[in-house]
Amino acid sequence: MFEARLIQGSLLKKLVDAIKELCTEVNWDISNSGINMQSMDGSHVCLVAFNLRADGFDHFRCDRPLTLGINLGNLAKILKCSGSNDIITMKADDNGDTLTLMFESEKQDRITDVDLKLMSIESEHLGIPDQDYSAETSMPSSEYQRIVRDLSSIGDTVNISATKEGIKFSAMGDIGTANITLRQTSSADKEEENVKIEMKEPVLLTFALRYLNNFAKATPLSSTVQVFLTKDLPVQVNYNIQDLGYVKYYLAPKIEE
């Protein structure tokens, strides 16, 4: 038996909206420590992982580890039936073929329950080691969103370089070129509005903007985002979900022939 109650149900809706376009059919691994997912997009160049900790839920029960095969598009449709202040409860039996979602209004005077059919999904799981990064940048998630959106109107790919000058995003296309450089800041009113750059070695990598733009769909989940760049390795873009967990995106770099 699995049962999880989330007072801030809108977080679940935002999480599914942040990942549903990259991965459609995914396995959620449920254990007594929480809910985990790892899934690659169809082309296998991008990976999405999330963790929702059991202690981030108002109530969490998982008697034995379960894998729930979920069509995220269908789950998103169901979550559209929930109100933005609803409390969401998820339930599944150990051998069941449905995930029950219950939406309770704030005043608990309206209750919706929906059964989502589960599926059997074969998925490839990758072992991602803890890496030493060449450069780690933390910035407001709205800033990241704006950079990748603005550069998408210039080109399809972006060069991201970290040097002691800062972190530079450059795009080139038919209409011209654009560079956006972020420098470290410390003057913002709130700590999360600052840009922090920790560089161990200069690094330059090229990525498809289409994916980086897609990662920005997680902006409503967190006020900050961390971008980890490592020489010759995928970029990691992390959004921490306060008191609940994280969603992380990985994207393979483009390589010169």
């Binding site: 160049v45 799981h125 990758l126 080691p129 995928p234 393979a252 770099p253």
Partner: peptide, 13 residues
């Protein structure tokens, strides 16, 4: 520009 799949960077757990 070509792009390797993630399996080229990360192995099986």
């Amino acid at each position: 520009m070509p792009q390797k799949t993630l399996s080229a960077f990360y192995g099986k757990p």
